[in-house]
Amino acid sequence: MKTKIVTLLLVGVLASGCVQIKNDMSNNFDHTFAHVVYFWFKSPDSQVDRATFEASLTKFLNNSQYAKTKFIGKPPKATRDVVDDSFTYSLILSFESAEDQVAYQTEAPHLVFIEECEDLWEKVIVYDSEGIVQ
């Protein structure tokens, strides 16, 4: 029971900061390979920068042929010391294989997104993981 409550709370927190991507596959999380990216903006309070980033990232993800799950998030107000809410945006993607993730790195929509937005961020951290349960 306790696990279900914690899971529901986490889902609610993540969903509250999500910008939806229009894609029929967006709810099919593939446990094979996860790609998690955190962005820290140079000017995190700039609404213009945020709008530019969200539009470019959404366009990119709607045109990616490799990314399956597509989640764009922003940090909720942290209520515990163990929560790092210092980032501006997060991106969580899943892929059918590590090879698809490698191909995604050089696909045209991804490269256009980087070109359009790289001047907005001061730091990016990526965490890639291969699933242990299929």
Rank of each mutant, 00 (worst) to 15 (best):
A67P: 01
A67S: 06
N62T: 12
V82T: 14
S64C: 08
K22T: 15
K59S: 11
F60G: 06
S26R: 14
V37M: 06
F71G: 01
S64T: 15
D24E: 10
V36R: 00
D45L: 07
S43T: 13
K74S: 12
I5T: 04
S64V: 07
D30K: 10
R80V: 05
L10F: 05
K77S: 06
N23R: 09
K42A: 01
I72R: 08
Y38T: 04
S16Q: 06
V11K: 10
V13K: 06
K74E: 06
K68Y: 01
G12F: 09
S43K: 07
V11I: 15
F71E: 05
W40P: 09
Y38S: 08
D85E: 11
C18T: 15
Q65D: 13
V37D: 13
V11D: 12
L9E: 15
D84M: 11
F39H: 04
T7S: 09
I72Q: 12
V13Y: 02
K4Q: 08
A15R: 15
V83K: 02
F53E: 12
A34M: 14
K4C: 05
V36T: 09
A51R: 08
L9Q: 03
V37K: 02
T32A: 08
N27E: 12
L14N: 13
D81F: 11
D85W: 03
Y38E: 10
K68A: 00
T7V: 09
S26W: 02
A34S: 10
G73Y: 03
A15L: 11
A55W: 02
F29W: 07
N23H: 12
S64Y: 00
I5Q: 08
F60A: 15
N62K: 06
F33W: 14
V11P: 00
H31I: 01
V82G: 04
Y89T: 07
V37S: 06
G17I: 13
A55R: 05
Q20F: 10
A67V: 01
N27R: 04
Q65K: 15
A78C: 08
A78N: 10
G17H: 02
H35L: 03
S43A: 07
T88L: 02
K22M: 01
A67E: 06
T79W: 08
K77F: 02
S26C: 06
T79F: 01
K70C: 01
Q65W: 00
P76Q: 07
R50T: 12
S43M: 06
S46H: 05
R50V: 05
F87T: 03
L14F: 14
S16Y: 09
S46Q: 10
Y38H: 10
D30F: 00
F60I: 01
D49S: 12
R50P: 07
A78M: 13
L61Y: 08
K68H: 06
C18H: 13
D49I: 03
K68C: 01
N63M: 07
H35T: 04
V83D: 14
G17L: 01
N27A: 03
T88F: 03
L14M: 13
Y66A: 04
